[in-house]
Design a protein around this nucleic acid. Structure first.
Length: 201
DNA sequence: ATCAAGATTACCT
DNA sequence: GGTAATCTTGATA
């Protein structure tokens, strides 16, 4: 399968919310030696270290949040609740501390391998397929994204984004974010309307 | 050195 | 709908 055009540095350097609106529909790709995995982004959340109390970067640069302060186009991976990895796309310019959490994907390429990564088998039910990448921890498990991928350059590395397969713009819903205790009121969650892989309505 | 919190998920009732 | 699992980080001493 021929992949759409890979996104470049300029794309990632757009302001946080501009980029957050544009990410749904794009493909998240992991291309290592022999294996090719890809999923369509269907749900994201924006985090802004300058103004947003719930952003990891809100209290300034620390060893953990260092990559959030790079220029746009790097991958920020962290361990959530000591259990799951979650991945973010760093956006904007150097030292802004802005990033977008990928909350859900629709599996597109390498679905068998994703099923093995997540469930340990390649034969899965319809129900299991819907559960494969419908959450930030789930998608990292399926895509095989781990702490070592923190800091990956999305322009030069094995993990990157591409343009959408579809030419028309998907219908986007904008709401408040999930699973946070601070700055709950900010409407910085974006997802594709009626897509079954969205983590929660 | 110690401690509390957390951008989640799976499994229970 | 409730909660255990599990561990890194950052803050405080």
């Amino acid at each position: 399968m021929e992949l759409p055009l890979k996104l470049n540095r300029e794309f990632y350097k757009q302001p946080l919310l501009d980029l957050a609106r544009k990410l749904p529909g794009k493909l998240l790709v992991k291309s290592t030696g022999s294996e090719l995995l890809a999923g369509k982004i269907v749900e994201v959340e924006a985090y802004d270290g300058a103004t947003d109390e719930s952003a990891h970067s809100f209290n300034g640069k620390t060893p953990r949040t260092e990559v959030m302060f790079k220029e746009g186009g790097y991958l920020y991976v962290y361990l959530s609740y000591g259990v799951h990895y979650c991945c973010n796309i760093v956006t904007g310019n150097k030292d802004e501390g802005t990033a977008i959490l990928i909350r859900a994907l629709e599996p597109v390429i390498g679905i068998d391998q994703m099923a093995i990564n997540r469930f340990g088998k390649d034969q899965i039910s319809v129900k299991e397929k819907l559960n494969l990448t419908s959450g930030p921890g789930k998608l990292c498990k399926s895509m095989g994204i781990v702490k070592g991928d923190n800091g990956t350059d999305l322009v030069k590395g094995e993990i990157y984004l591409t343009e959408s397969f579809e030419t028309n713009q998907p219908g986007i819903v904008q709401t408040t974010r999930i699973g946070i205790s601070k700055a709950k009121e900010l409407p910085w969650r974006f997802y594709i309307k009626d897509n079954p892989y969205v983590s929660r309505k």
